[in-house]
């Protein structure tokens, strides 16, 4: 005689049996071996600051976080990757992985901030938030906050103009003098350095409007007294510093929602005949 499984069988088992898939581990908040970085997301961080943060996380949580450079950029900067998983639930390579990166486009620097925020959020809420604990136990997270470190460095430390690189920075002989990258498009006097005046003059030439804006205080209806000004850097859809926290939190939860819905498998009751 044959026996068939009732269709409702699987649904009835879902909640109870799925929880058995993971080995039981004590879940207490992580205690850093040394002081963990305390990033503040009301401003953007440049390549150097983020690199120091990543080293700080790896030193504070040496068993959980590993840091490696997967290569060098064109200008010799390390491309850092952070791996996060719970070592007690298995080796990193034995678990499903989720890869999170940011700042592929040179001028979209807030992607790197979102990536760092996600790493920080997971580490500091493990053992406190149920979903975070489950994710870190079940998955391996790979973070690559700065896919384009040279572009990030230039975004922070050079004026934003129409010639600001959006792609990976490669040496270009833009003025056809036989030398590559010895001066930028807007280095008008050819001395190798671009001053704000030169940048503004170049922007005027292209009728793009001035990128250098005087700092001034503004009374914002929601955020109160805020300062607006500096290099506009508005080409890459980057939020103002005082809006950054909301954006990185939203981006982070969007990514974690996908991580949460990665398949979680378990066996139901076998039927042997």
């Amino acid at each position: 005689m044959t026996r068939t499984l009732p269709r409702s069988f699987s649904l009835a088992c879902l909640v109870s049996l799925a929880l058995l898939a993971l080995p039981a581990v004590a879940t207490a908040p992580l205690k850093p071996a040394k002081a963990a970085p305390e990033p503040v997301f009301n401003r953007l961080h440049d390549y150097q600051e983020i690199s120091e943060m990543l080293h700080g996380y790896a030193a504070a949580f040496p068993e959980w976080v590993s840091l490696e450079s997967i290569g060098k950029s064109g200008e010799g900067r390390d491309i850092w990757v952070v791996t996060l998983t719970n070592p007690k639930t298995g080796d990193a390579l034995s678990k499903p992985g989720i890869y999170i990166d940011g700042n592929t486009h040179a001028n979209e620097v807030q992607g790197g901030e979102s990536t760092i925020y996600t790493l920080d959020f997971l580490l500091k809420n493990y053992g406190t938030l149920e979903r975070v604990t489950e994710l870190v136990d079940r998955l391996t997270f790979y973070f690559l906050p700065m896919v384009n470190p040279d572009g990030r460095h230039r975004w922070f430390h050079q004026p934003a103009t129409a010639n600001f690189p959006r792609t990976v920075v490669v040496p270009i002989d833009d003025d056809r003098d036989g030398l590559a990258d010895e001066d930028g498009y807007d280095n008008l006097d050819g001395d190798g350095e671009t001053t704000p005046e030169e940048s503004n003059a170049f922007d005027d030439l292209l009728t793009l409007g001035r990128q250098q804006v005087e700092w001034k205080e503004v009374d914002h209806p929601q955020y109160g007294k805020i300062e607006v000004g500096g290099n506009r850097h508005d080409v890459g859809r980057v939020p103002e510093g005082w809006m950054l926290n909301e954006e990185v939190h939203r981006n982070s939860l969007f990514v974690l929602h996908h991580a949460y819905h990665l398949p979680r498998l378990s066996f139901g009751e076998p039927v042997v005949r």
Partner: peptide, 21 residues
Amino acid sequence: MDRDLWRVHLPVLNDRGIPSV
């Protein structure tokens, strides 16, 4: 089914939204 011959039905459950393949 017979001596030492067994038929096994074993369900594999996925309680999350993304399929495993």
